[in-house]
Design a protein around this nucleic acid. Structure first.
Lengths: 389, 389
DNA sequence: CCGATTTTGTAAAGATCAAAGCGTATTAGG
DNA sequence: CCTAATACGCTTTGATCTTTACAAAATCGG
């Protein structure tokens, strides 16, 4: 059941609700006239007028005085959501790189900073690098920490309620790092830490291959294999934040699936372990027999875990993401065939369209969601950076 | 993000919202005074007063004139939600029996009818039996079809959007039955058809072993093995209604798991195939070596599928339901051990507390949810049976 | 170039609703 | 029997939205 507020609504609250309606009608729209807003919200024109003026006074909207007007009649003032009232951060702390995105409330990316990190860097160094990237991103955009309304950081491994990756993480020593606490000392706004697969899934639904779907299984296919789940349009974290970790089940052969590619016979010694998979995909594309069987075996193993998720959740679409999605041409059809064989109801299978930045993008989106949730649940005062509760 | 209505709110709508607040505050509570309601909703006492009188006039509430009053002061009139304004049906069409429950809007069961059916009865006979049970239940409660506000029917097998069990069902010929259509000719109210495992899960959350949890994996352990998923307090159907069908994956050994019990050496010929499992559990309880290993093997296979669901969804609690949950004393600890071995984060594992009626109870709850959703989204006119859209 | 038309902006009036305040009814306890 | 406490019902007040009306600003047609 929808958990509506059980509290009654008085007149000031009514104004607040209607203000929120107007804000909603303003967002993700070109600058709108009062008449348009009136039609969109069902409120009368005078009511919209006073509310819009109030929003401008509070800083939530800006006015565009009428200029050239193609239509007949008196040209209308236009109101616009002031997306620059606040900004949010989305950060991907990956194994090899750190990427920070800073955007306004509409999700327009204002500034981004990328910095490569050694895969075996100790936690302290990685945290220091993270701090540098954040600083660079803030100064690059001309913002102070107090201007940021929400921060989301992506890390690898299942994230528990405290923001730690205590179950497992490929980053050495990272399981004990209190990332939330570390960032909380710098930002007064809400700080979230979330798993990278989950955030990539969010990004694909936001701007990627799954923008039309509400039930999504995102499979991260790379040197690690993971999954992110979106059901009914909402990211599912699980009770302890470990949803999607189907790869931990031995009967599902995700753990060793990439080994088929790494250990494929014929890979030259000159190719490093991280590039072996790319070499195998290329070789398979050119017809190399051993490479083709390696890819085939990899997909078969990948499909078992994907099928488990599909059978468990019956999604509309399965998104193939991660580093190997660059070779989707070799994987997608085989994956479809395997899923068809294993599943009851066949979902669509699509390749990611966002590439490697999807994780940071998903983090950004989660920050935006956080802001929206506060905005639309708490009420509408003047725009200021929210503080953690 | 919460998908609030984008429409503005005017004064009549405000009254409606506040009326709904009062209805909420009235439900599942002992008869309440105006002052109590005022405190519960935050509305002023006069406002609550006029709204409550309106609810009485519309038929949503009844007045209890003041009688003996323990407290000091003038005794207050008490208002009570009129749960008998409407009634709903929850029906379980099982393999061996049909069970119909009829309740008022508070979920108080007014009448129930149970009728056994031959497992191999053809669909036409089963439908006729269903019609009889419904008629008996209605007349037994003194109700007409027009008095029923929602109907939910539980069937075995994954239910698609049309209410058919086209993927699979153990009932012979049932895959083609258009149950929704069949019932729609009799009831003008909304009719839902849903999978039995899913409904059992709903029931356990409503009144059973999982009433404190929002993320639940319900495992139906019986001659068939199935699952129902509740995430964030909401039943998950999946895009095509086939969520939870992890048993279809061969790597998960649910299909053949009960065979360990049925084919256990030592079962006397006098025991039929349906009772073999019960015999084995009893024998195991008394120390029979072969029976114990059979149970152990069964649990090991059951745990693989349960672990797949737990890893995929990371629930708070796993509920063991179905016929075999009567032998939870033999299963639960072994299941816990296996899950501990297989999973990342260990959920609680509990046995069902509702028994065989849970499916019909879950169907009833879904009907109640349907009514609530309409009530709290559409608005509050005089109480009449809702019609299908 | 000027008036008709259309659309916008704004003001005033009317309606609805909730809050606040106040007098009255009813009961308990001394 | 009388006082205090509690609850009820009514009236007044204030806030909000809608309707209606009218002035302002632009285009269109002659």
């Amino acid at each position: 059941m929808t958990e509506l507020a059980t509290t009654g609504t008085d007149l000031p609250r009514l104004r607040e609700l209607n203000s929120l309606s107007i804000v909603r009608a303003l967002r993700d729209q070109p600058p709108s006239t009062v008449t348009e807003l009136s039609q969109r919200t069902g409120l009368s024109r005078p009511a919209v007028d006073v509310i819009a003026q109030g929003l401008v006074a509070d800083g939530w909207a800006t006015v565009l005085e009428p200029g050239a007007n193609s239509a007949v009649g008196r040209p209308a003032r236009r109101y616009q959501f002031r997306a620059t009232a606040g900004h949010v951060l989305g950060i991907d702390v990956g194994v090899h790189k750190i990427l920070a995105l800073l955007s306004d409330l509409d999700g327009n990316i204002v500034h981004s900073v990328r910095q490569s990190v050694a895969a075996d860097a100790p936690p302290a160094d990685r945290l220091a690098e993270l701090d540098n990237v954040i600083s660079a991103c803030l100064t690059g955009a001309g913002k102070a920490p107090a201007d940021i309304w929400a921060v989301t950081v992506a890390v690898t491994g299942a994230v528990d309620a405290s923001g730690r990756t205590s179950f497992f993480t490929p980053l050495p020593g990272w399981g004990d790092v209190d990332l939330t606490g570390h960032l909380a000392s710098r930002f007064a706004c809400p700080v979230q830490v979330e798993n990278d697969c989950k955030l990539a899934a969010v990004a694909e639904r936001w701007q990627g291959a799954a923008s039309d779907a509400n039930d999504i299984v995102y499979v991260l296919a790379g040197m690690r294999t993971g999954a992110g789940l979106i059901l009914d349009g909402v990211l599912r974290r699980g009770y302890g934040g470990a949803a999607g970790e189907i790869g931990a089940l031995k009967h599902v052969r995700w753990l060793n699936a990439p080994a088929h590619l790494q250990n494929c016979p014929g890979v030259p010694d000159t190719v490093g372990p991280d590039d072996a998979a790319a070499w195998v995909f290329n070789a398979a594309r050119e017809g190399d027999k051993a490479a083709r069987t390696a890819v085939s075996r990899y997909v078969k193993d990948l499909a078992v875990g994907a099928a488990a998720l599909v059978l468990a959740l019956d999604p509309q679409v399965v998104i193939l993401g991660g580093g190997f999605s660059r070779s989707a041409d070799l994987i997608l059809n085989a994956l479809r065939q395997e899923l068809q064989r294993l599943c009851l109801r066949m979902p669509e299978v699509r390749a990611s369209t966002l590439g490697a930045d999807s994780v940071a993008l998903g983090a950004l989106k989660l920050s935006l969601n956080e802001v929206d949730d506060r905005l639309f649940s708490a009420g509408l005062s003047a725009p200021v950076a929210p503080r953690r509760k």
